[in-house]
Design a protein around this nucleic acid. Structure first.
Lengths: 352, 352
DNA sequence: AGAAATCGCGGTAACGTTCCCATTGTACGA
DNA sequence: TCGTACAATGGGAACGTTACCGCGATTTCT
């Protein structure tokens, strides 16, 4: 009864009320062995009565485990990264740990600052989508971490999880071919980004397998934004072409921008231009027509990243890269040229 | 030199290296007074040399301040809430504190669990968008908190920040009237939600001021989702009506759903049906036509919520509700009937 | 010049928890 | 009956930091 009424109850308050020592109370609360069943229940009742809640700060101090993980994503406003965050949080919560989510806003300095904050907060580990290129000093992070996203491939010796771009591109290309678009054009990201190279390599491989010369395929690049996609599409439409145009955009935002450019050019999607995207953001559903796309499993990526991070923390030698399979989401932005309607047959002069 | 090379350096390591006591080192690191300038610099150099980083867990234990805030939002995947989170994080970072963001997924049980986690993590305060209705026991939260969102209005004695629905509705209605839509129809949320009542009251007031009988206005309700909006719009179109239809949706998702229903009915937006939404989510930009809407200042709401929470923590008596003004975002989903084109004049029989 | 104030610094306790070791009581086998 | 084993509990110490108190040295005032 020595406690003032305003202080949050500690394990000592619980112990006093249960008439045991704090060691015994701790054992009861931790569910450890070597404790009399009756005593344990008495402690548990005392804990409930006082409204005791374990102080995670103190636990972290003593045990060296804060029970927190860090997640640094480029944009918390982007629904895809939101999915990743949710997956990570749900998985972490299952193991009784929480996730600190930080948004780097594609800014390397901000990213570095966030990592510093995570270190000071003594998180047990971090999941990072590297936006900075100078991550050669990642060895000095001083805390367990895994990378997510395709740019993580620059660091083959580090555990990471991303989507399987090869499989995704194959999925998209197969779908395009099955719909009669055997030689699509491409809108890809800026040259500096590794994801672009991965994407193009997969396209290349697929072409070679089908005995198609990749050199004949039209290609434009731009920023991974709506505006970037719009401008790239504009340039694509300025090129000489006959009949139906089909575009594979490396990112849904760009695909949406491309769709805008098509409309602005007085053309129609999908009857004049077919578009397929890559990401699976919800906005694609509300576009008109709905954006057909290859969806990345954002939530699952978050889940697996946490699991990989746990392995890293426990020093389980699971080092390696995880590639998550993507899936096709069919909506309305792709014309089916494989079963020619009379109308399409008339307009489809450019069909191969 | 007593430290093993694997341990993270503590303030004692810094003190040893600088040849002072840990008290002095602490003073230097805290930037406190009562310390010789030369000594301070020596300590700072020692800290930099050892790579010392303050252990926030220990600080929190000793000072009773964890330097962390909690934020519980309904859906981290929704870009609007992402904006709120970003605003909160940026503002908190300015004051050297970090934000734990949790997504309740509109689930009261999950919400309660998150709040428990926040308490155990000993956050200094929490920002909550209450999804549970049984928040009558919020006095037992046992930690400083503020509410965000319109449903927070149920608790007038609690600090909160939300958007100014009255001003927003007025803005929307004025815009509609100026474009020649003097008697719009409405798609509103389910009856149980307080936001619905707030919305309707504002509409009512605006009508009365304009000498219009609110009773003549058509109205349908549904869930705050795309599907809810789509079905409500379908019902609205089944009603007898003449000429141009104008719809004010209480939420952008519903507006997007309404747009879908219009297309599915073989009608065109905006030439047959005008639609205005409320929220300002990015998806509205990529819809076709672009969704005209009243945008809530999500980021600013996050910023103000943190500031309000700081006041609460410091026991500054700033209790009260903050209403953030919204702004009109004009895109293409609204027909302008105020300057009748020949074509519109022919079709505009229903115009008042 | 002596007293008082100030400055700079060190020592110690405390925050709440868990871990390790010591101690007690009881049951069991020889 | 006594020693041993084991179960159940209590008593400290430690995690890294900051707050408080006190002490010596220097400066300032009367």
């Amino acid at each position: 009864m020595s406690s003032s009424r305003n202080r949050r109850p500690t394990i000592i308050d619980v112990a006093e009320r249960a008439g045991v020592s704090k060691s015994t109370a701790a054992r009861a609360l931790a569910g450890s062995s070597n404790i009399n069943e009756e005593t344990r229940e008495r402690v548990l009742r005392a804990a409930a009565a006082t409204g005791y809640e374990r102080n995670h700060l103190a636990v972290g101090m003593r045990s060296g485990r804060s029970g927190m993980l860090g997640l640094v994503i480029p944009d918390i406003t982007n629904p895809f990264w939101g999915e990743v965050a949710r997956g990570a949080q749900d998985r972490a919560a299952e193991s009784g740990t929480s996730v600190l989510v930080f948004s780097s806003d594609w800014d390397a300095a901000k990213e570095a600052a966030h990592i510093g904050t995570l270190r000071r907060a003594r998180v047990d580990g971090a999941i990072i989508n590297p936006v900075a290129d100078n991550f050669d000093d990642h060895h000095r992070f001083g805390l367990p971490f895994v990378f997510i996203g395709s740019s993580a491939e620059r660091f083959p010796d580090i555990s990471s999880v991303g989507s399987d771009i090869t499989q995704a591109v194959r999925l998209g290309m197969d779908h395009l071919v099955s719909k009669g678009h055997s030689a699509p054009s491409f809108i890809v990201g800026p040259k500096s980004r590794l994801a672009r190279a991965r994407f193009l390599r997969a396209v290349h491989e697929h072409c070679v397998e089908r005995d198609v010369d990749p050199g004949i395929l039209a290609m434009e690049d731009g920023e991974y934004t709506v505006e970037g996609g719009r401008q790239a599409m504009r340039r694509l439409l300025e090129r000489p072409h006959v009949g139906h145009v089909c575009v594979f955009a490396a990112n849904d935002m760009m695909a949406l921008g491309a769709m805008m450019a098509v409309r602005e050019a007085g053309l129609n999607c999908p009857s004049d231009v077919s578009i397929i995207g890559f990401d699976g953001i919800p906005s694609g559903e509300f576009a008109w027509p709905g954006l057909t796309t290859i969806a990345k499993p954002g939530r699952e990526i978050g889940v697996r990243a946490v699991e990989q991070l746990f392995d890293e923390i426990e020093h389980r030698p699971e080092h390696g890269r995880i590639y998550m399979p993507c899936r096709l989401v069919e909506r309305g932005s792709l014309a089916d040229l494989s079963v020619p309607t009379p109308q399409r047959a008339a307009a489809g002069a450019g069909r191969v």
